[in-house]
Each structure stands twice: as C-alpha cells, then as structure tokens.
Design a protein around this nucleic acid. Structure first.
Lengths: 201, 201
DNA sequence: CTAAAAATGGACCTGCAAGTCCAAAACCTG
DNA sequence: CAGGTTTTGGACTTGCAGGTCCATTTTTAG
C-alpha cells in the first residue's frame, strides 16, 4: 500500500514506537497520553498521525508488536539452543534475571487488556508470540530426546505447553505479588522433572 | 466509619456491583462507562456516587473484590477438600469446566491492569486471592502427604506455587489463544507427577 | 536548480464520560 | 404523624485527550 518512508521518516517512526513502549512500560497503558509520547520523544501531533494515521490504536499495536518481539529476543541465544542441560539452566537463569529486572512493569499484559477487545490485531500478536515461544521450547525438548537426555515417552508438545503456561503464570504472579518465587518454582521443578525421566541413553 | 445502609440501600449497592461486574466481564473494563452500569442496573448517577463516593475507582475496586471472591467460591467444595485422588480430579474438572465456560472473558486480568497502577487496593485484592488459593492447594498437598498419597520429600509450598502459576498461565493462554490445552496440560501433568512420587504408604 | 513529495509544528475543534449539585421521593423512628 | 435521614433522579458542568487541519520546512529526484 503506502510505500514512502525516508530514512529520516523511518528513524522518527522507530523513535516514536520505542519511546511509547518505554513510557507504557513505565506508567501503564492507560496512563500514557499521546501528549506524553510527544514530549518523551520530541515529536509533534502532526508526526504521530502522519506515521500512525489510525491514531492511538495503530500506535499501540505497533508497540505491542515491538514488545512481543523483544520478549523472545531477550531469551536468545539460549532459547534457540536448548541442546544440553547447562543450556537449559542458562535459559532458566536468563528468564529469572530478565523478569526480575522488569519487575512489576509488564508491557503486554496491559496491551492485551487494553487493545485486546478493540483490535483483533492485538490478539494475533500475543497468540503469535506464544506460539513461537512454545515452538522453541518444544524443539528444545525434542532435541533433548534425540540425545537421550529426556525420556522418549514424554509428550513434547504437552510438556512445552505446560511449561509455557507455568512461565506465563509465574510472570503474572510476579506482577501481582512482586515475588519471583513462583517463576523459580515452575522452572526448577519442570526442568528437574524432565531430567528425572531418563538419565540413561 | 460510615454506618448507614438501609436494607434497600444494601440491595441497591449489591445490584450495582453485580451489574457492573457482569458488564465488565462481557465487554471489558475500559469499554464500560458509568452510564452503561446505570442502564444495566436501572440506577441513576446520584446512586452511583451515593454508594461509591470516590466514583469509578471505588466501584471498580468493589467489583474486583466481588470477582476475586467468586473465583474461589466457584472451586468449592473441591478446593477445600483435596483429600483423595478422585477429589483432585474433580477439582481439575471443575477448573476446566469453569474456565471453558468463561472463555475469553476475564474479569480480573483487566481489573489488575486497569486499576492496578492507580489503586494500591487492587494489587492487594489480587495478592490476597492468590495467597488464599495457593494456601488451599498447599493444604491439599500436605493432606495427601499425611495419608501417604504423596511422597514426603515433596516440598508442598514449592509444588503449590508451581501449580498455581501453571493454572494462572493456563488461564492467561486461554484468554490469549482461546484454547484450553495449556490449562489441561498443566493440571494433568502436575497431578500425574505428584501421584508418581509415592504410591506406597 | 526546481518541483513534487514527505516531514514537521502546533493551533484548533469536538465529543464524551466522570463528577457535581440539588431537589424530590421514600423510608425509618419515636 | 412529624422530623430527620437515606435514597433516588437527572440536569448541568468541566476537563481533557484524541483527532483534524493546514501552513511551513526539509528532503528527494530528475
């Protein structure tokens, strides 16, 4: 459709998205006004609506996509290389570290609730994220099965689904209670369990 | 503080809360205007602010508390009587059934995001809910340990924490993707695992 | 160099939803 | 039944945030 973005234009657009994302992470979706984004990114209303003709809706969607991508990027290169137990533990540590640092600020939780109903697009973004995430975990499990580090009877898909759910819940509980215990418990117990099945090869 | 609520007054207040809760469940927090609540409950603005002087904020808090209580009530009497494997499975079935029926409509997810930042009270409500929930699960595990149905080496607190996280994540994924698979996987795999430890007594 | 297109700034408009106010009705209580 | 209190209805105010518009500057391309 619309092809016409100068290098400068792209930079500005990116700056808006990144700035809005930061602002939202910091203060929550429904506390952030377009004016805040303008102030924080040094842009004007004209620019916002120039790059996001559909207004806030479209901007929020772009932010959601940006944040969703970041979630997976933050887990690399571990997530794509769950090929040994040390690798799994490194991944575990990265997750804990990442969410501990993030603390109570969750970008996507709010975005799902905020735009979820209105925009069908937001739903798609989150679904896509979860799907990719789960796929990576599944592949990790399968690989470990191929090396005999995980019992072949384990249903990789179900195990990955459960683990992903545990992680999501752990993060949710971190948001709600401020404690990381749940996330730790999920990761440690799940990994321990996967490991327990088959020690032989 | 304020003591002065006629029976009629209490009824009206309750009607407002219940109606608002229903409306919010149906259409999402940020889609519901006070006007909608008025129309849906047959009340006037005067009444809203009579029973909730602090306005929407206070109303939402009351709704959140109402919904939080309901979550646990819906799991009874199973949740408080996790004293045998059939009881655990019945609880599992109830959870699946309940959330399957609820579908994509989550009252608390939105309320946490919406009021979470503003009102410190919302945080407290969710935290309280989670704490009570986890406590019930822990007690269930402990009871099963006392009868020898679960191995004594199991750390009841950690196991409960992980299970609760899994459930939360399962529900979250149900909201996001519309599929109940994750919740099922978590419940089945976790129960299976608790069961596997000690079959002897 | 010049004309078209893109990028920018900011004044202005507009609608809406929360919150205010007060007067009328219903209701307790002695 | 009389006085106070609670309950109710709804008109009105208000602030504000999203969105529109256009004039100006900057960039691109031939």
């Amino acid at each position: 459709m619309t092809r016409a973005l100068t290098r400068k234009g792209q930079a500005t657009r990116a700056r808006i998205v990144a700035g809005a994302a930061a602002e939202i992470r910091e203060r929550g979706v429904d506390e952030v006004r377009l004016e805040d984004v303008m102030a924080h990114t040094g842009t004007s209303k004209g620019q916002l609506f120039h790059y996001f003709p559909d207004g806030k809706e479209e901007l929020l969607l772009a932010v959601a996509q940006h944040e969703a991508d970041q979630v997976l990027i933050d887990q690399e290169p571990m997530l794509s290389n769950l090929t040994s137990w040390p690798a799994w533990l490194a991944w575990r540590d990265r997750l804990i570290e990442r969410y501990l640092a993030q603390g109570v600020k969750c970008p996507l939780n709010g975005l799902l609730g905020q735009t979820g109903r209105r925009a069908p697009g937001a739903q798609a973004i989150v679904t896509g994220l979860m799907w990719r995430w789960q796929k990576a975990i599944t592949e990790g499990i399968r690989h470990m099965q191929s090396t005999g580090d995980i019992a072949p009877e384990v249903d990789a898909d179900r195990a990955a689904a459960a683990l992903l759910a545990g992680i999501q819940g752990g993060v949710l509980l971190l948001l709600a209670t401020g404690r990381i215990d749940h996330l730790e418990a999920v990761l440690d117990l799940t990994i321990e369990r996967l490991r327990a099945g088959a020690r032989t090869a």
